[in-house]
Structures are given as C-alpha cells and as structure tokens.
Nucleic acid binder design. Structure first.
Lengths: 259, 259
DNA sequence: TAGTGGTCTAGACCACGTA
DNA sequence: ACGTGGTCTAGACCACTAC
C-alpha cells in the first residue's frame, strides 16, 4: 500500500532523513509526477509508524530543497518543473528596441509567455553607495529610481529597480510611469546617449521575507540577483538596473570571445 | 536580560515567526555580529516562555535563510558574510594560459586566495543527452569526463566536470590526471583547436544532498550552476564544462555590446 | 560532567479548502 | 462536516563539544 518503501532498521540515518530519501526517490522515479499530491501526513504516519512531527520534519526537508510545496487545507504537492525562460545576452539589441519592444517583452515572446508589468513606482532618491559607485557619481547625488515587478502569465517572476542620474532623465518620459515605446533605453538614446555596452554581475542567494512576499515564492526557492550597468558610447554609465529573479524561472545565457 | 525584545500579544503572526523576526532584526542590527553565538535554545525558551520546539522552528527559519548555522554540541552562530570571488569573463583569456595558469588560479590570485584542486577523476563515459547536444555529437558517443573539486584556502567552493570528445583528447595529456601547464585548453590548442569563443548558461537552485556533502555546505545555501561550452575557430564545440558553485562564494561578471 | 543542539513521541487546538 | 496542513506543548533520550 502507498507503493512506498518502508523504514530500514539497519539504516543508521535519522528516521526523518530516511523518510525524506524514500519520498525523494519516489518523486525522482515519477511515482509521484510533477503536480501530483503526496500521501497526507496522516497516511504517512500510519505507513511509517512514526510520530507526525517526524513526518513533518521529512517534508520540511523536501520543501527546503524546493521539491514539494504544501498548500494549507489541500495537501502537499510535487512542484512542477518550472518552465525555464532563457535570457540570451542579445536581449538588449537595438533592433528589438527599434521595433518598440522592451527587453522583457522579447524574453517572454521567445518562450510563449504573456508578459506584464505592475507595481511601477517612479521617484527621486539619493543614490546608495553601490549605485553611486557604478554610476560614478558622488555618493548622495539624486537619481531617478524606477521600480517595477515583472509577471509571466500573471505570476511574478522578477523585480527590478533602475537608477538613472537625474541629469540624463530630466525632461524625458523616463520620469513618467509609461516611458513610451522601447522603454528607457530608447529615451536615453533619443537624449544623445547611444548605448554601447552592458556589464552584468550575477549572484544567487535566498530571498528575504520581503522578496518572498513580492515574488510569491515558497520558502526554499533561491533567487538570482543581477545588477546590470549600461554604458553609452563615451563610456559613461547611464543606468544601473538591480534585479531579483526567481531562480527556477530563469536560465541566463552569455557568450564571450576567447581573446 | 538577553537584550532581546519580548513577544507582542497583539502580533497576529505565528509565535515562531515573531521570534524569528526578533532574532533576525537583532542580527541585522549587529547586536549579534557575524560569527557570534546566539543564546542557547534553553535560554530562548526561558526568555520567550515557549516550548523548545517553537524556538527550534524559529531557528530553522533563520537557518533556511542562511543567516545562522548550528554546530552540534557548540551552539548556533551567525554566519559570516562570505568573501566574494568575482569571476570576470576574461578569466579564460589566452594571455593567462600562456603564462601557464589555469582559470581557477587566475580567479584565486585576483582575490588573494590559495587555490587548490582535489578529487580529480578522469574516465571515459557515454555522453548524456545534455552534453551530446552541446557538443553536437551522437547521444551515446564516448567522451572523456574530467571531474574535480576546487578549494579556496582549503574550503570546497566548486565542483566541475569537463566533457571532451574522445577524438579531441586522444593522445594528449587531457586523459592524464595532470594536464600540464595551462590545462586542457592549452592542450586543445596544441592539438589544433584554437579556441574562439565560449558560451555560459547560468542558473541557481538548491543543492542536492550529494552536492551539499561534496561542497560541505549547510542547508539553506543555494548553488550557482554554470554550463560552459568552448568553441574552436571553426565553430566546433570542443568542451562542455558543467560546474556547481557555492552561491555565497561567487559573483559572476559579464560584459557584452549593445549591438 | 555539564551544556549544547539533534531527534522523537503523543498528544492538542487552529485555519484553510472542499463538498 | 471533514480532511488537510499549521502551530504548539511538555516532555524524553541521544550525540557532540568543551572543560
């Protein structure tokens, strides 16, 4: 019954780890396919003959690994292998901007998602040390900060905050909610700052509770952090974009020469 | 006593979340600096007047976030902000190879670490679908698989497996443990495959229990995954390198033109 | 030996989702 | 109403570390 192995007396691992391993194997073997429901805690208590807290500890381990997620009142479900959005480094190519598309539209289109943006907030603020350093401006100069949240098929996948020196944004639609076709990069170029190159700094970590809420992720799912700096043809940094992406939703692609 | 806030009756959050938040704030405010020890579970039980399991649940949350780690028999400690190794995309530049240095040496030198490599295993095996696709060879052709583990100052930070088509490795030191100065890229170039460009695919996820063991990481620390493909001047893929890095130890840097 | 965290039990009551 | 997971209690014994 339950089509699950039972505990091995000789196994010296902690009981909850053994149970986690049994469930993990069953999931990997597709005995519980993506999206399916695991046996309830009560059933697992009966099957393994242990206390409920022991079962919960095993499930906690699988949740931390991101293998399953619990829904209060419904059950524990195998997480669907998330569709991956591949981000190629030509996503900022000028040809896309000229067609009036934002980089996020380009990404989404290439994999068949419906892209949307919400929570757009535009304000002026003093640059943080990290932003000021990348923009090569004094530490408390004012910048225009544009924060927003990206959604794919209605589900949050990324937050982003762009910082632009006030001098480059003043009098353009960069300070309006709707920046117009092609987004802020198109506006910067109209303003004489022809974009020449980007740098990106990529890392990963666990999200803060705040980020978990904004991105609506379960505990145990890491985020990719990406800080992009855009330089114009004179080598002047014109924008820093600080993004936090749900790791399971993204694969970043880069290409570079061997010199 | 303990210099910690107490529980707020009116706070509607679960008790363990409230306790976790109190501890998190204390850590962020440096009341418990990096490396310092938190009060013992017994002390926290007394301070907050709750059951031990409730305290443990709060600590579990902080562990999942990677903020603290427990040492059996010693205590719970605030995790030190890990030193970051920045990986620039010129780390495979030919000038470094000509100086007899491997890419990992270059990385380590640039930040003052002592680099070392262990667990080197070289064997022939059938290509996995993922590797075969990237190398553009039939799905069960044989490849040379070189796996190893990188350490910085003696601590594991990354595992890597390189796959090279047998035809390109045969008769070179690529199949020996010690590949000689400049590593496998230098050997490939001596063999007529002048490297022209690389692609890298970057993602992040939680480590498998196996990876956690190999990299000696605590639960709750994500890994960066990086698959690099090397192409020679004829556009032929000559190597696929599949790496898993401790996320907190790395920051990847890329640069690309705006077209 | 004393103190620490690790594991486990056997209950209890609550909040949520479904029917 | 019922079954699900979420939270919490009040213990127990064990394994590890430090002295």
């Amino acid at each position: 019954m339950l089509q699950l192995d039972t505990l091995d007396e000789n196994d010296e691992r902690a009981t909850y780890r053994q149970i986690a391993a049994i469930l993990r194997t069953a999931i990997e073997d597709q005995r519980f396919p993506a999206g399916s429901q695991l046996p309830s805690e009560a059933e697992l208590v009966k099957h393994f003959g242990v206390a409920r807290m022991t079962i919960r500890q095993a499930l906690q381990e699988l949740r931390t690994e991101g293998l399953v997620h619990a829904e209060h009142g419904r059950g524990v479900f195998v997480r669907a292998a998330s569709p991956i959005k591949r981000l190629a480094s030509d996503r900022f190519a000028r040809k896309h901007r000229e067609a009036g598309k934002s980089a996020f539209d380009v990404e989404a289109e290439s994999v068949g998602y419906t892209a949307s943006v919400d929570s757009i907030v535009v304000r002026r603020e003093k640059a943080t040390p990290s932003v000021a350093e990348r923009l090569r401006i004094p530490a408390d100069d004012e910048v225009v900060a544009r924060s927003r949240r990206y959604l794919a098929d209605g589900r949050p996948v990324e937050t982003a905050v762009s910082y632009i020196p006030v001098a480059f944004a003043e009098g353009t639609r960069i300070e309006e909610i709707d920046t117009g076709p092609g987004g802020i990069y198109a506006r910067l170029e109209e303003n004489g700052h022809i974009l020449a190159r980007f740098t990106e700094e990529v890392g990963a970590r666990m999200p803060t509770p705040d980020e978990r809420r904004t991105l609506a992720t379960a505990p145990g799912i890491p985020v990719l952090t990406l800080i992009r700096t855009a330089y114009d043809s004179s080598g002047v940094p014109v924008e820093v974009c600080d993004t936090v992406k749900i790791a399971s939703a993204y694969l970043l692609e880069y290409e570079f020469p061997a010199h």
